[in-house]
Nucleic acid binder design. Sequence first.
DNA 1: GTCTATAACGAGATAGAC
DNA 2: GTCTATCTCGTTATAGAC
Lengths: 202, 202
Amino acid sequence: MARTKSSQGAGVTSERILDVAEVLAQTRGFNGFSYADIAAEIGITKASLHYHFPTKASLGAALVGRYRENFQAALAKIAALNEPGIEKLRLYAGVYGQVLGADRMCLCGMFAAEFSTLPEPIQGELRQFFDENETWLVRVLEEGRRDGSLRFEGSAADTAGLLTGALEGSMLLARSYRDNARFIAPVGKLIQVLAVGNEASR
Amino acid sequence: MARTKSSQGAGVTSERILDVAEVLAQTRGFNGFSYADIAAEIGITKASLHYHFPTKASLGAALVGRYRENFQAALAKIAALNEPGIEKLRLYAGVYGQVLGADRMCLCGMFAAEFSTLPEPIQGELRQFFDENETWLVRVLEEGRRDGSLRFEGSAADTAGLLTGALEGSMLLARSYRDNARFIAPVGKLIQVLAVGNEASR
DNA sequence: GTCTATAACGAGATAGAC
DNA sequence: GTCTATCTCGTTATAGAC
């Protein structure tokens, strides 16, 4: 019988490691957790971790790579919906909101803070994550402008940057207060400002 | 002769330490620099650093305390100007822009990412920094609404949160690209949206 | 794949001389 | 205030048995 992804054995442990490391990285940052933390949580030794991820740099790169792919998949689902641009924007914010709802920071926003201390492969994965966010947002923003649900001035890229920046920044601050309303209210207000039919009521 | 703040001796070295530690903290984060880094840069030993700041927690708290006070002073100067609210908002963004222009992240935005790993005294200083930002912004926003230079919907507090979040977040992302335009353009766009006389052109 | 054992280094911190 | 010397602990990483 052929070995599959869902079989026992090779591959499962490394996913488990990534799951645990992801939570640690999203709550404490790349420089805020160690192999010992992961080992204690999973119940294997540090040496075993090095079998799956030889270096912490390789673990970090795998972490961001998987996060980025999962994120892209979520965005692709939203893009495929038969909804106006404004609604897709709300769902996009909802993806970030779910991360915060799980008491985590966006992995890539977290790593962006530590950017200058990260191994180069991780830095590359990070930029790719943000590039993919921008590409997706530009498409949705222009779509929304065409379908009449969104209104904004200037380049879609600048508005995309504002959205991502506001989402990441609001998440960052909300975590310092353990108060998710500090994310939901400002982000909701920003999206409302971009919605058509809001001329006199900003 | 009485010993003053500007005299040689006690007090000067600790300021020097804070200066060097501040740059390190703003570029690498609290968990990304060590006493050894500071010592090497200043040219004294680690032991001497411990004379001025017994623990790294005390150094971190002093760092945020001083940063917060300097920031407050800058905001007070802007508040005292005889300018409309919209202009004060632009100057506020300019304060953040100067930090980024010096190739640094906002100290408090950086520490906010590492929040859960920080000693409690530092966490308190951080919240105070953001509280002071919000208080100042709410005042300016309401002033701008009265003087007719600003227009926004709902509570000033939510708009203040959006501004701080967007500033911190855009800074974070701009640093990953070494591209300050990724801060200036989105932030400029957000402020423009809040300006009166912009109804049909968002 | 997982273990024990250990290497090699850097971290924050202290004692005590000068 | 600054130094040398040292301590203790945590870090990433490797060697080699099972």
